[in-house]
Computed example of a mutant assay.
Amino acid sequence: MQCPNIEACPYINSRDGEDIIQYKKQFCYGGYLSCARYNVGNIVGSVPDDLRPDDYEEQAKLINSK
């Protein structure tokens, strides 16, 4: 199942390169429930534009600071 936020995601849509292709495969078109951006957005409400989908350390900081 595709991430419901894929069209509006500034991290994925404003970058190019092999890492973005891998992020799309891993998170956008598959396991978006494990995406740090998706989780922070659902819990905190706003997501920093530069938060990587696999930055779980920053995800924890953002969620715990809420």
Rank of each mutant, 00 (worst) to 15 (best):
A8T: 12
N64Q: 10
E58H: 09
P10M: 00
A36H: 02
N42H: 11
S34E: 10
I20A: 08
P10N: 07
Y11H: 08
Y11M: 01
Y38H: 11
D54H: 08
D50G: 05
L33Y: 14
E58K: 14
N13M: 03
I20R: 05
P10R: 00
C28D: 03
G41Q: 04
E58D: 08
N5T: 02
V47W: 01
P4D: 07
I43F: 07
D55A: 11
D16P: 11
G31E: 10
A60T: 08
P53S: 08
R52G: 02
I21G: 07
D50H: 12
F27P: 08
Y56W: 08
N64S: 13
Y11N: 01
V47M: 04
E18D: 10
R37E: 06
D54F: 08
G30R: 14
I21E: 14
G41H: 01
R52L: 14
D49N: 11
D54N: 13
I63M: 07
E18S: 14
Q2H: 08
D49F: 00
R52E: 15
Q26Y: 06
D50A: 10
Y56R: 06
A60Y: 04
F27L: 05
A36N: 04
K24D: 00
K24V: 09
Q2Y: 09
N42Y: 07
D54W: 04
Y11W: 12
L62I: 07
Y11I: 00
N42C: 12
D49L: 01
Y56E: 05
K61N: 15
M1Q: 10
D54P: 04
A8M: 08
E57P: 00
S34C: 06
G17M: 03
D49Q: 07
G17K: 01
S46A: 11
S46N: 11
Y32K: 07
S46T: 07
E7N: 12
G30H: 13
N64I: 07
L62C: 03
A60W: 11
N13G: 09
N39M: 02
F27Q: 03
G30E: 13
C9M: 01
E57S: 04
R52K: 14
S34F: 10
V44Y: 01
I21Y: 09
P10A: 04
G45F: 05
Y23G: 01
N42D: 07
G31Y: 06
E18T: 13
Y29V: 04
Y38L: 02
N42Q: 10
N42R: 14
R15T: 07
C3M: 06
P53F: 05
D49P: 01
S46C: 02
S34I: 03
D19H: 13
V47N: 03
E7F: 09
Y56L: 12
D55N: 15
Q22K: 15
Q2D: 14
N64A: 13
E18A: 14
F27T: 03
D16S: 15
Y11V: 06
I21F: 13
Y23V: 09
G30M: 13
E58F: 00
N39A: 03
D16R: 14
D16I: 09
I12M: 10
E18I: 12
G17T: 07
I20Y: 02
